[in-house]
Design a binder for these strands. Structure first.
Lengths: 183, 183
DNA sequence: CCCGAATGAGACAGTGGTGTTTCATTCGGG
DNA sequence: CCCGAATGAAACACCACTGTCTCATTCGGG
């Protein structure tokens, strides 16, 4: 129950902060249907809440990484699976990225773990000849994050349809904008 | 002189806010080498300063759009030129995008003008058969902005070399990550 | 050199959010 | 039903930042 409450509050906070990254504790509390006092009883402060949210995002993205089985099969297909499975977390990730960008606090160590796994996927793809070698795996990793976030915002602002999010991101990341004759 | 001072202050503010989007008026003033009082004499308030910065970003990006001659020649090459010429503004653009994302204030009308021009470039490319049709011009436009910003951050955090910024962004946007046999 | 304009330094009140506390109320298991 | 735990509402001090003002100092053109 305490656990469920906590989860519920975190989900509400994630949903709100995804849309309005500067929401106050009071707004977050209202969005979760509780009072500011209770919110403070659950999370010591705004920092603690954001950090908890960060843990949630890391956990969910890591789960996506697991379920996508990024170590198996065609690397390009693995990237596609990863993006598809990440879609529900896209909003949170977008929020956390800008948050990390805004305050240059020592970002959660968990990101390194995820970065490593994503980067390994791209490196594997390069070694197997699926991905080009003239774009570093580090950059492809950044670009994956960036495009997921950009896609989430574009959907949120109604500039692309929600159902197209996954396809737009994965197609652009993998294939680029240029039209290809073969295929 | 007044003009030069203003420009100098704006440049300093852009440089700082690119790195720390939440910098206070005092920090901005120090970064520009002037006092907070003088900063307030130049710009009525933080809003006014950000708006002026927005105008600067729009102006510079529009100039890039002009110099790239996006209406002429091969569309893909035009995109490449545009990204190369935008590189000096990349940091400001990254800041302004998150700023616009954070506060959903009625964003400057000038953006529409730029959006239209960028989108027209992608549409032209699609009509000429250079760009794929299954990714909307609107999404390609968003992706261009997003990748420029992501690239700027990656450079700032030292994850990719500054000299690679333009190539990384344009190659990924145009060609994607997948390796191509033909060429 | 001189005078007006611009600047820097500091004081000041106002503001919005934060974190804490108190107290009355509600909830739920025993 | 009862009692302890959890909650909501309100009040409070606090903090950082903002925007404004004053005044002494500096700067630069005439």
């Amino acid at each position: 129950m305490t656990r469920l409450d906590r989860q519920h509050v975190l989900n509400a906070a994630a949903s709100l902060l995804t849309r309005k990254a500067t929401a106050s504790m009071d707004e977050i509390a209202r969005a979760a249907g509780i009072s500011r006092a209770t919110l403070h009883r659950h999370f010591a402060g705004r920092d603690a809440l954001v950090r908890a949210l960060e843990d949630l995002g890391i956990e969910q993205f890591e789960r996506a990484l697991d379920e996508a089985r990024t170590e198996e099969g065609d690397a390009a297909e693995a990237v596609r699976r990863l993006i598809a499975l990440s879609e529900p977390v896209a909003g949170i990730l977008a929020f956390l990225f800008t948050e990390n960008q805004l305050y240059e606090n020592g970002c959660n160590e968990g990101w390194n773990r995820l970065d490593t796994r994503v980067q390994r996927l791209f490196t594997r793809g390069q070694e197997e000849g699926a991905f080009r070698l003239d774009l570093s795996a580090a950059w492809l990793t950044e670009a994956l994050y960036g495009l997921i976030g950009t896609g989430a915002w574009a959907v949120h602002d109604g500039r692309v349809a929600a159902k197209d999010h996954t396809r737009m991101v994965s197609e652009l990341l993998l294939g680029g904008a240029r039209r290809r004759m073969e295929r």
